[in-house]
Computed example of a mutant assay.
Amino acid sequence: MESAENAALVVVDVQRGFDESGFWGVRNNPGADGNIAALIDVWQSAGRPVVFVRHDSVRADSPLRAGSAGNGFKAYVQERRGKGAGPELLVTKTVNSAFLGTPDLGAWLTASGIGQIVLAGIQTNMCVETTARMGGNLGFDVIVAYDATYTFDLVGPFGWRLGADELGRAAAVSLHGGGFARVVTTAEVLAGVRG
């Protein structure tokens, strides 16, 4: 897999509130946190840009609501912030897409001459997928490290229920098959960086 020298790693919503299984339910990709940490480590040691995205939920019942303990980054992410040799950005948002947060992610990427982004984080079929779709629409070369993302079981219309694995696969197929992003493994991304 080809990786641009200045490709930005965008770490989406890796927040403590997602550990509240009583709220979210069953998740997939149990190795995702280790893969996210590995991506951050490699990006930082290579001096590449890293963007940390935090969802500041406006819902009173959300574990991710602004000001709550769950709003903070998971410990392994928080301890890595500010440790890289390259540029770092914090984006906060209240909607699904990191491109609709503060500061303006698209403007920062463009001003920095960055045309490729690698996405990792939570949830595969929500904020990761929405950010990937919008990034693709905005003309960025988007790569999703699938096994560095995860999601949860979900109930939709008509009582339909899909498991986390099904939802993750559906998101991956839509993104990759629809041309919004290339969906790959963490190992492929790391091999592309290490060359």
Rank of each mutant, 00 (worst) to 15 (best):
G121S: 01
F99G: 08
V95I: 15
A38F: 05
V142G: 02
M134S: 05
N96W: 11
V53F: 02
Q78A: 15
G82Y: 02
P103V: 04
V58G: 15
G136W: 06
T92H: 13
N71F: 12
W108H: 13
V155L: 14
T151S: 13
I122Q: 02
G84H: 06
V155I: 11
N137T: 11
L109E: 09
V51F: 01
G72Y: 03
F52E: 00
A75G: 13
Y146G: 00
D141Y: 03
D56F: 08
F73D: 10
S112T: 05
Q44R: 12
C127L: 10
R48H: 04
G31H: 12
R59M: 14
D141P: 02
S112V: 01
R59G: 04
G113A: 00
D147V: 00
G121Q: 01
S68G: 14
Y76S: 06
T151G: 15
S97W: 15
K83R: 15
V128Q: 06
T131W: 04
Q123L: 15
G86H: 11
V77Q: 04
V118G: 00
Y150T: 01
A46S: 12
H55Y: 14
N125R: 10
P87D: 14
A132K: 08
A145Q: 07
A111L: 10
P87T: 05
I114A: 08
A69C: 11
D41G: 07
D141R: 11
V128D: 03
